[in-house]
């Protein structure tokens, strides 16, 4: 059942992505000021939103694990974090490519770049901590606690670095600006590509969760065999 869901989700995401790529590269015109490079926004912004959605979902799953003690929440939290970190890296790399063309440099210590890098480091620490603990319940308990501390910190990191320095372009989505900063056709495509990327992320999470669950079952069988 789950395999079919993964295949269906991946197939719909692939079709939607193909449709989006056609429109992004062949239908939508170049942006007036930036030229062709602006198209990176269709991957850059959805990757960031997907990553943050993932980090928030991890927080919820971590709290649910600490309340219930059900290891399925832990497997899901680990998978969602992994996928979240991947999309955070996609966001950073696409941002750097854009910055090289527009700003002439690969990296600047701007608020959002720095904040995203800190988020990647916090959640990479979470993934490294998981690898350092062998016992499943201890791993689940400690990584759930770290995830809660990490998410609380993400909010403070974004606020503090924003005060510290910023040169990143202002938000463009009309839900944040009230409209007028982006062409409606481009914004429509942004949302459509967000949907495609979110579906890809969901398919990846389902695949990783299955692997995590199987790894835990194999580990418990191995422990049982060693104990016998």
């Amino acid at each position: 059942m789950r395999e079919r869901l993964v295949i269906a989700l991946a197939a719909i995401a692939a079709l939607l992505l193909a449709y989006n790529l056609y429109h992004i590269f062949l239908v939508l015109p170049d942006e007036a000021a930036q030229g062709a490079i602006y198209r990176i926004i269709f991957f850059h912004v959805p990757a960031a939103i997907t990553a943050f959605t993932g980090f928030f979902v991890t927080l919820v799953l971590s709290i649910m694990y600490l309340i219930s003690g059900n290891l399925r929440y832990d497997s899901l939290a680990a998978s969602v974090t992994e996928v979240g970190v991947v999309f955070a890296c996609v966001n950073l790399v696409t941002g750097m490519i854009w910055a090289r063309i527009i700003w002439g440099i690969w990296w600047t210590w701007d608020a959002r770049l720095t904040s995203m890098l800190v988020c990647v480091l916090i959640y990479s620490g979470y993934l490294m901590l998981r690898r350092a603990i062998d016992e499943p319940t201890q791993r689940a308990r400690l990584s759930a606690a770290l995830s809660i501390f990490g998410f609380a910190d993400v909010i403070l990191v974004w606020k503090s670095i924003q005060w510290f320095r910023t040169q990143h372009p202002s938000p463009v989505l009309s839900i944040r600006t009230g409209g007028g900063n982006i062409d409606p056709a481009m914004e429509h495509m942004l949302y459509l590509n967000f949907l495609a990327i979110l579906m890809i992320a969901a398919a990846l999470v389902l695949v990783r969760t299955r692997q995590e669950t199987m790894a835990r079952e194999i580990d418990s069988l191995r422990r049982l065999a060693n104990a016998a």
Binding site: V118, D153, S160
Partner: peptide, 10 residues
């Protein structure tokens, strides 16, 4: 150090 320093940044 890998865990604590990113969290101490703010």
């Amino acid at each position: 150090p890998v865990i604590i320093y990113p969290i101490l940044i703010p």
